[in-house]
Design a protein around this nucleic acid. Structure first.
Lengths: 226, 226
DNA sequence: CCTCCACCAGCAGGATCCGCATGGGCTGTT
DNA sequence: AACAGCCCATGCGGATCCTGCTGGTGGAGG
């Protein structure tokens, strides 16, 4: 499972991250609400573990509310020192899925994480991928940016799908050749460049924030910022 | 939401049931594990609220394990007086989705119930259609019969999809022209016949039970028998 | 300044796909 | 029996669409 942990307490963060990783999950971490929200909105996670209280304006509840407003249904587990019933209810009402009070036993955190992660990815296949205002609907084979429909060719679609499934991660040319072209050799041409170029034109033309980024000597990456 | 409550303590049961009903949910209730399991297995609920300890052999954990084994993914919230971390972990590991320790505040129970009910069946788009041993996967755009992959053209795919979405119902030519071809007039040719024919060849050839049936003077129908 | 890498426009081959027309079979009616 | 209406299968032609390559240009990095 790909988990995003947003926690400002360094000790707790370290402890949780280590434990989750040892249980076989991939953990990204943010130390404040701003970064956390940005990551959660721009990349795909199976679960968010949020501290209820965070420094700097954007707290856990705020993050969830924002995400839910954007149709992001990623399960959310709150961690908090606030143990009052009202606090717990508020967290859940905002769109959280579970609420664990500090201090907690790691075994319970893990069990609850896995309970949350169990349902969505297991039986409800992803039907739409989203990166910033770009959406790709696997069912209708449709691409939209900022609500406007964009026509893409089959190969472009596969390319984009692969990029979006790895949003925020660099995708190498070799990977693309394997996964999008089913080539298991180097075609010695710039096929990829050409298709990426075409895709760019369709996706980024007319928008000031480009989504497809070149990573020199490595490959490409799709992501909202830099 | 349709909720099943399995709780042997009459007082608690009454209290919870009343509260959930006042929040606008429908509540069925069982007083022991046996009945609870039977109900949960035979009817469709959006959520199960189970007492962890129940009289007569079948306890909450047992119920969940049995259901999960039957591929029943209905969300489960445990209620229990057993507050140890190990107990909680066990409940979640068995397939529970949440665990609330008695005594609890009703507001929290309600919030957790609604958090659990929020996600699952509410909006899960259909991604695969099935008629007898014929399956159509909207995501991979794949058709299989009896496990064997069958290649179909785009237009054939749309045609088949439309037929399968109305399995067991006659689909008229006019409907097909509108929905599959986007024709709003009569093309005066036998386009439909041709495509149905091609589809038949691919789907029914080599199988004794045909799935696509002609309804004379009406249209076509896909269905397992007759 | 030089080199390498990436970008983009244009092009042309190819493959796919689709719809039409024809001829034949079946069914029910006259 | 003969006929009309409906439905089925196949071959063919055309058109579109798509894709990958080439070659020249621009820019980043050394």
């Amino acid at each position: 499972m790909r988990i995003l942990l947003v926690e400002d307490d360094v000790e707790v963060a370290r402890f949780v991250k280590k434990g989750l990783q040892e249980a076989g999950h991939t953990v990204e971490q943010a130390g404040n609400g701003r970064d956390g929200l940005f990551l959660a909105a721009s990349e795909a996670f199976d679960l968010l573990v949020l501290d209820r209280m965070l420094p700097g304006g954007v707290d856990g509840v705020r993050i969830v509310e924002t995400l839910r407003q954007q149709d992001n249904r990623t399960p959310v587990l709150f961690l908090s020192a606030l143990s009052g019933v009202d606090e717990r209810v508020r967290g859940l009402k905002a769109g959280g899925d579970d609420y664990l009070v500090k201090p907690f036993a790691f075994a319970e955190l893990l069990a609850r994480c896995e309970a949350l992660g169990r349902r969505p990815s297991s039986e409800a296949p992803v039907t739409r991928l989203k990166v910033a205002d770009l959406e790709l609907d696997l069912l209708s084979r449709t691409v939209t940016r900022a609500g406007k429909k964009i026509d893409v060719q089959p190969r472009e679609f596969r390319l984009l799908e692969h990029l979006m499934r790895h949003a925020g991660q660099v995708v190498t040319r070799t990977m693309l050749l394997e996964k999008v072209w089913d080539y298991h050799f180097d075609p010695q041409t710039n096929v990829i460049d050409v298709h990426v170029s075409r895709l760019r034109q369709k996706l980024d033309r007319g928008f000031d924030k480009p989504l497809i980024h070149t990573v020199r000597n490595a490959g490409y990456m799709i992501r909202a910022e830099g």
